[in-house]
């Protein structure tokens, strides 16, 4: 009880100091919020449970509403899935390679997939390998970093903590792309651009990963402090608490972080293009496949692009669907806690 109170109080202070740091006058909106709360409570209190009356027309009306909803949902599903079927159909089109004005191919075949791996311009295997490597390495190291930062910030109150969090908040408001101008020069000094761009990107992804601590910190905040206390009483060191108590409880958030880290390189277009600097061998799938669609290439490679898209989408989708539960938990938690 006592710890809880004091903890709450510490949190209370955190909030107040926050507001102070941002130099915000909080009085008025706060009182407004309080008023709203009071009103809400009153509303709940006055809600008397009354036995529900059944209208005659209720069920029929409901049925109509449900039918409408089924129709709308079906329509939504069609609209949302259409492009993906479109890509698949395009990828099997053999009679032409550019844009075509129809959905169903006239001649079906695997030509585009073959081209994807054999054509001199398409370096698909290399791109895929680059991206896979980036995804694997980044996801592991990034997870270690994120866990470390979020645990340290969630469980400890140390000097400079607030400063560190504010710094990350403020610098996070700059567009990240801006840093690339310097980082490109830097990486090229170390030979980590052009065909080695994947390695440079790995360094950049990992180095910045500590900034994305919010969601994991929110998760750690919800783990009861009494666990730590108990372990502390039993003589556990901090490192033991971290590895033996907190981490085993954090499986969902760890999987979420790994998943996010793994998926990021597949969709990263900006950084990959910038770091590879027109070197085909340094592209990831996003940069590479987009390059197939540039004005001079599109007429010859449009269907090849679609084949590549299918090959990229399949493994990612399967992985994602398997771990969907964790993704949903992470995203929802992040949305609620901000």
């Amino acid at each position: 009880m006592t710890e809880k109170l004091q903890y709450e109080q510490a949190v209370e202070f955190d909030v107040d100091l926050d507001a102070e740091a941002l130099s915000i006058e909080i009085d008025a909106p706060e009182s407004a919020a309080v008023a709203e709360k009071i009103e809400y409570r009153k509303r709940i209190a006055s809600d008397q449970p009354v036995p529900a009356k059944k209208h005659m027309g209720q069920t029929a009306k409901n049925r109509i509403a449900n039918t409408v909803i089924y129709i709308v949902l079906s329509a939504i599903c069609v609209v949302w899935l259409l492009p993906f079927f479109g890509i698949v159909f395009e990828s099997f089109r053999c009679e032409s390679t550019g844009l075509a004005g129809y959905i169903f191919p006239k001649k079906w075949g695997f030509d585009n997939y073959v081209r994807l791996f054999t054509d001199e311009n398409s370096n698909f295997l290399k791109w895929f390998g680059n991206t896979l490597m980036m995804g694997l390495i980044t996801s592991v190291v990034q997870t270690v970093f994120v866990m470390a930062v979020s645990y340290a910030l969630s469980r400890n109150r140390f000097k400079g903590r607030k400063l560190l969090m504010n710094l990350m908040l403020v610098f996070g408001m700059f567009p990240g792309f801006l840093t690339l101008i310097l980082l490109y020069t830097w990486m090229s000094d170390w030979g980590l651009t052009m065909e080695n761009a994947p390695w440079g990107l790995i360094v950049i992804y990992i180095a910045g990963s500590g900034m994305g601590y919010y969601i994991a910190k929110g998760f750690f905040d919800t783990i009861s402090h009494s666990l730590d206390e108990a372990a502390r009483v039993d003589g556990a060191t901090q490192i033991q608490i971290f590895f033996k108590i907190i981490l085993p409880l954090s499986k969902p958030i760890i999987i979420y972080t790994i998943l996010m880290g793994f998926m990021a390189p597949w969709g990263d277009f900006v950084m990959a293009t910038f770091m590879a600097n027109n070197t085909n061998a340094g592209y990831n799938v996003a940069a590479g496949l987009q390059w197939l669609l540039t004005d001079s290439m599109i007429n010859e490679y449009y269907t090849t692009f679609c084949a590549g898209g299918v090959l990229v989408a399949i493994p990612i989708t399967v992985l994602f669907m398997l771990l969907q539960k964790y993704y949903v938990a992470g995203v929802t938690g992040g949305a609620v806690k901000g």
């Binding site: 645990y151 340290a152 840093t179 980082l183 910045g208 500590g210 060191t237 901090q238 490192i239």
Partner: peptide, 26 residues
Amino acid sequence: VIDDQFHKTLLSLPVFGIVMFTILPI
């Protein structure tokens, strides 16, 4: 380093990364 200053150990590398690759470039 692994006990009461453990948070510093945890933070050192990520924060170094952030300082060098985010704050410095910005």
